[in-house]
Amino acid sequence: MNPIAQPLVQHGPVAPSVLSDSLQVEGLSKHFKGTEKSVFRDVSFSINEGQSVALIGANGAGKSTLLRCCVRLIEPDSGKVSLSGEDLSSKSGRALKKARNRVGFVFQKHCLVPRLSALTNVLHGNLAHCSGPRNWAQSFARQEDRQRALDCLEQVGLADFAYQRCDQLSGGQSQRVAIARALMQEPRILFADEPTASLDPQSGELVMDLFGRLSRSRNLTVFFVSHHVEHALHYADRILGLRSSELQLDSASHSESAASLREFYA
């Protein structure tokens, strides 16, 4: 049985429906010092709640930088970003961190602590909301948090692996644990930076499938960077394309074809 093919349980708070904009970006620009060209110039778009959006572009087109600039993990030179109507541009220090705590991030590498169990790694997602030893290891955690962490693992189909050390999991399983860790945050929006780049095709499909199902079942906004034209077409509602430092494509995925998207890699 495919471990993921389990009924999804609606879990965690559902974001209020009055907010239709999940992410709003206006006139974002970034130029790294010492380089000739800017990474991107004057990029604007907005993503609705529950939408699944893919960002495509050739290597070095600035996709990952754009993704990071959206939550100011990299500081943009100019422009404005709002998350769920909350302006991030003016925040600093603790307020910025607090704004980030409902943003789940999945990276190309799973970024789990290898010597710790899957359950403990998932529990670490809770560090976004409260600090302290209670969220350091599953053995110190409150019973309800342990249960919630196990539920998150259940949603990615890995509840049976809760007490396995993460260095004993496969690449695809690790990436799913990383997604469970992001779910533990009860995020409003999930960012994924080439989440399937280090996975074999089959595990990659599994991971993308999971994003699609989470987006639908939890009304979760998903914004992912991908090199896979097929993934973008199949799993996203909408596709953004970055080329020559500009956002040159913004359209619904059903109106695009694989051939037209491949031009972005030419």
Binding site: N101, V113, A128, N135, W136
Partner: peptide, 17 residues
């Protein structure tokens, strides 16, 4: 870095990473 991106505190990251 992953835990930093979600807004965790330095002491937590020392303890868990």
């Amino acid at each position: 870095e992953a835990l930093d991106s979600i807004g965790s505190r330095p002491l937590d990251r020392i303890a868990v990473v």
